[in-house]
Design a protein around this nucleic acid. Structure first.
Lengths: 192, 192
DNA sequence: CCTACCGATCGGTAGG
DNA sequence: CCTACCGATCGGTAGG
């Protein structure tokens, strides 16, 4: 890992722990045992660092969603999206958390770009639910409402999920998939 | 509204828009057309302001949850909790957003106090779901997982809900209640 | 990668 | 409620 990557990784950890504005460039430097000013031979500005972290996370979420075969049955498609979302969240925890929480501190252009990518990502969920509704597999009054609901549940997971905690990623995925499909009216074998 | 309340309200708005650390005391003062130093005859410190905002929101959420009659049927209890949660979120949007997002910038004692109150709040959901599971009204594999799922979906709503937007609070409540009950395996009249 | 330093701004206090 | 001010820290640059 080169210095630039180390800086981005360290910044991601700190932005997640303390937030973008509460983290100073000197905090990042201290973790790497160098002086704050030395960062600037590798990076351009604090905002550029935030941008790269957020954009990298967006890449990961989008790549995953785009890899889902749209010819699959809607339940399978949604299941794949949920699994992928949770996998990316857990694998990139700091970056994902920063993506969800700190993107709004980007200004102008960068902010708009990231909003577009978020919308593109959410569209994968909306389209899948819409397809399931059309195929009468999902029973849902408002597609937008349902996809907001499910995405909300998924989005919040970075807040509490602890890879070392009592749930594995597999267990989380299995239960969240079941809860989501059920919320859309899909009948599953009951597990009391 | 006295000056102290005005300061808290203004601070809540700004903390929501820009975050606690990105908001300076002078920003708050500017909105009230006074100098930053003048704030200090009404408040003790910036952290105390954050604490009061967060704690006020916690009061509102807890009061609502505690007012739900525990002798109701589990579906009705959960419905009341969901309605109450969304009502408080929408009515106190800035404070609720700060409660969800900025509480972690509290230090020591205050931080621990708020964590306890959050846990107490979540317990209302867990207990209701557990009661429903025992009564075989809810079909749920892991109570903790299911309550995290539903609370996550609810918690995220402050991120996107716009009182002036295309959904009313009533519509939001109705749909989220339906989605939540269904996710727990409750059968509802289907709405395609 | 460092030292040295810039102007700006931070939360907060003194004193009126 | 104000002016005046404190020490600390901010993101970032110059120059080596």
């Amino acid at each position: 890992m080169d210095r630039r990557q180390e800086i981005l990784t360290t910044a991601g950890d700190l932005f997640r722990e303390n937030g973008y504005h509460a983290t100073s460039m000197r905090d990042i430097a201290k973790r790497l045992d160098i002086r704050g000013s030395s960062l600037y031979s590798h990076i351009e500005s604090k905002e550029q660092v935030l941008w790269e972290i957020v954009n990298e996370a967006a890449d990961a979420f989008l790549a995953q969603a785009e890899s889902v075969d749209t010819s699959l049955a809607p339940e399978k498609r949604l299941e794949a999206l949920i699994r992928g979302h949770l996998e990316v969240t857990v694998k990139e925890l700091p970056n994902a958390a920063v993506f969800f929480h700190e993107w709004k501190f980007l200004s102008g252009d960068l902010r708009e770009k990231i909003i577009l990518r978020r919308d593109a990502y959410e569209a994968h969920f909306r389209k899948t639910i819409k397809a399931g509704k059309k195929a009468s597999v999902f029973k849902v009054a408002k597609v937008k409402m349902a996809s907001l609901y499910i995405l909300s549940a998924l989005n919040w997971s970075y807040q509490w999920f602890d890879p070392a905690g009592s749930f594995s990623l597999d267990a989380l995925t299995k239960h969240y998939t079941e809860l989501s499909l059920r919320s859309l009216g899909v009948k599953l074998k009951s597990k009391t």
